[in-house]
């Protein structure tokens, strides 16, 4: 069974981003970029499925600028078998990415797409659901437990009330949540080996997909900061202030 793992190159989660002075966006020049952490978890899960003999081949795919090749090499170093970059310097929004991925799925015919539940840059939480819709496949989102057997996936989903378990028929799209696993670090020998693994580059036009953005991010600003508060000296003083000053008791 082939597993497709879409991965996104994003600003590293430890970087404190800065909004550009002209409010045109976030300054990502010269900041550390990494694989979206949720996608790392998806990649790890695909590798575990392969180690368990369930998956036979793992294909990592990314959409974005040429430097996204680095992110794909990371996936290859973790254990993916080959990679595809859908190269574009245009702004790619979730619906466009879902269409690009759907085109790749039609070529590659995987039984499972495993991807992060959201990217930590635009925080949209859409692409997996959209891909499932475009393919007419079932979806299991926010997955933190997973078993794949007998042509179906049984997934424990992180929902607001607790954990919901659903069974979806394969082929399916699964989006993963934090607690599914702890991703491995790539070893140096594997990083070296990854450089020799196949990485194909295609263009959105080759896939026949119109990626023109439908949403315009017309302004990006700093959120209003909270004003610094006061330190209180004792529990008594705290309760007093909450009662009289803040009025929340």
């Amino acid at each position: 069974m082939k597993v497709l793992v879409p991965v996104k190159r994003v600003v590293d989660y430890n970087v404190k981003i800065r909004v550009k002075a002209d409010r045109s966006g976030v300054d990502i020049a010269n900041v550390k970029m990494s694989m979206n952490p949720f996608d790392e978890i998806a990649c790890e899960q695909a590798i575990r499925l392969k180690e368990a003999g369930v998956a036979t081949e793992i294909i990592a795919v990314s959409a974005g600028e040429p430097k996204a090749q680095e992110t794909l090499r990371t996936a290859l170093a973790m254990g993916a078998d080959r990679a595809i970059l859908i190269e574009s310097t245009d702004e790619l929004q979730p619906l466009a990415v879902a269409k690009l991925l759907a085109a790749i799925v039609k070529k590659e015919d995987p039984q499972l797409v495993l991807m992060g539940k959201q990217a930590i840059d635009d925080d949209s939480n859409q692409t997996g659901q959209m891909l499932a819709a475009l393919l007419g496949w079932p979806q299991a989102t926010f997955v933190s437990r997973l078993t794949v057997a007998d042509g179906q996936a049984e997934a424990g989903r992180e929902v607001d009330e607790g954990i919901q378990t659903i069974a979806v028929k394969l082929p399916a799209v699964l989006t993963v949540d934090l607690r599914l696993n702890e991703p491995r670090y790539a070893s140096l020998p594997n990083i070296m080996k990854a450089k020799k693994k196949p990485l194909d580059v295609v263009k959105p036009a080759d896939l026949g997909v119109d990626v023109a953005p439908r949403l315009q991010y017309v302004q990006v600003e700093e959120p209003s900061a909270r004003k610094a508060g006061v330190k209180v000296g004792s529990v008594q003083e705290l309760v007093q202030k909450l009662k009289t000053e803040a009025g929340v008791l």
């Binding site: 404190k16 981003i17 976030v26 949403l215 991010y217 600003e221």
Partner: peptide, 16 residues
Amino acid sequence: RFIYAGNALATVVSTD
């Protein structure tokens, strides 16, 4: 809407 975990606030126009 917020982007980057609430560290930036974006104004978005939908053209659909």
